[in-house]
């Protein structure tokens, strides 16, 4: 990727995406808006700059100052949209920019376009169906297959993700011949993420979308848990098309005390790992205390959706100006 000046002596001012891809983006956005208009889902906007941000260990927020006060570019509009839901908005969607530091690659750009929507009264399975309908509409793909997380890892990596310990998972990664493995120690979730990223994901969504649901409780993020002990699963799902991870959704956690515990646990783990501390979103917690309706929500990467619609392999082909040329 060219970083600086081009050989003709000028700065690299030109878009990396062709005009056909620029036009395709406009069509995909119009299609998404028509999809939600027909279904009576309201388009909303929420701030990109927030006083608080996510505590998730694996999301790095970009920080700036407004009138001298610390502000965070949002990694997704989730917290603000939940405040609208708690205030009685009904079903809502948003198309906005999201920002994640340190995420740059063929399918990552530190600023990207996210489609996020919430459905009061839905659980994750009902929302998964709607994700499948949206994908059919925009990409013309057939109805999705659905696999539980356990089935996906058993089928594509040959291991039970709930029964295996870190040693088993590390051994399986070696058997699968994954190259130059990092030392992930006894971090089960990191081993699972490694197997998921390098072995399972490339096999998902081939010919039709794959929806993966019911994740290990340690990977719940903001999803609610179902069951207890060995039976517990997080009601979270992901959507894949042609090996590309496209969407992440939850049957949303509504319990403010549980939400506060998860924030605190994230912050403690951030401290252990020397990651920055971030302010907890007290306004979200207050909204949950007021009452979030039973709902499911999902965030879908629009740039990747356009990449798939264009049959491209690298985001540069569908972003007018990727980060290196921003």
């Amino acid at each position: 990727m060219s970083g600086g000046d081009d050989p003709r002596g000028g700065a690299d001012w030109r878009p990396t995406a062709g005009m056909a891809a620029v036009a395709l983006r406009a069509r995909v956005l119009a299609e998404i808006r028509a999809f939600f208009a027909e279904r009576g889902v309201l388009e909303v906007e929420t701030p990109l700059l927030g006083a608080a941000t996510v505590t998730d260990l694996h999301l790095a927020s970009l920080e700036t100052r407004v009138d001298g006060r610390r502000r965070f570019l949002q990694t997704s509009p989730e917290f603000a949209m939940k405040r609208l839901l708690a205030a009685g908005s009904g079903p809502i969607y948003q198309i906005c920019k999201a920002f994640r530091d340190g995420e740059s690659g063929r399918r990552h750009n530190p600023e990207f376009t996210l489609l996020e929507w919430y459905r009061p009264g839905y659980d994750h399975h009902r929302l998964m169906s709607e994700v499948g309908e949206l994908l059919s509409r925009v990409l013309g793909v057939p109805a999705p297959e659905t696999l539980s997380y356990r089935e996906a890892l058993e089928r594509h990596a040959g291991i039970d993700p709930f029964g295996a310990d870190a040693r088993d998972l590390a051994g399986r990664a070696r058997e699968l011949g994954l190259a130059g493995l990092p030392d992930l120690g006894d971090d089960r979730d990191a081993w699972l993420d490694l197997l998921m990223s390098y072995t399972v994901e490339p096999r998902l969504g081939r010919g039709r979308p794959t929806l993966i649901y019911d994740y290990p409780p340690t990977q719940a993020a903001l999803a609610r848990l179902r069951g207890t002990g060995d039976e517990a699963v997080a009601e979270r799902f992901e959507a894949y098309v042609e090996g590309v991870e496209l969407a992440n959704g939850y049957h949303e956690l509504r319990d403010p005390a549980e939400q506060r515990r998860r924030f605190a646990a994230d912050l403690a783990r951030r401290r252990d790992r020397g990651l920055p501390q971030v302010p907890v979103d007290e306004r979200l917690l207050a909204a949950l205390a007021h009452g979030l309706p039973e709902c499911a929500g999902v965030a879908l990467g629009v740039d990747r959706l356009i990449l798939l619609a264009a049959g491209a392999s690298c985001l540069d082909e569908v972003l007018a100006f990727p980060h290196q040329r921003a």
Binding site: R106, D193, Y198, E238
Partner: peptide
């Protein structure tokens, strides 16, 4: 050459 990958949530990796 480097390639960044990340599952939907969780640990990101770089294969070099």
């Amino acid at each position: 050459d480097t390639e960044f990958v990340k599952p939907g949530k969780g640990q990101a990796f770089v294969r070099v």
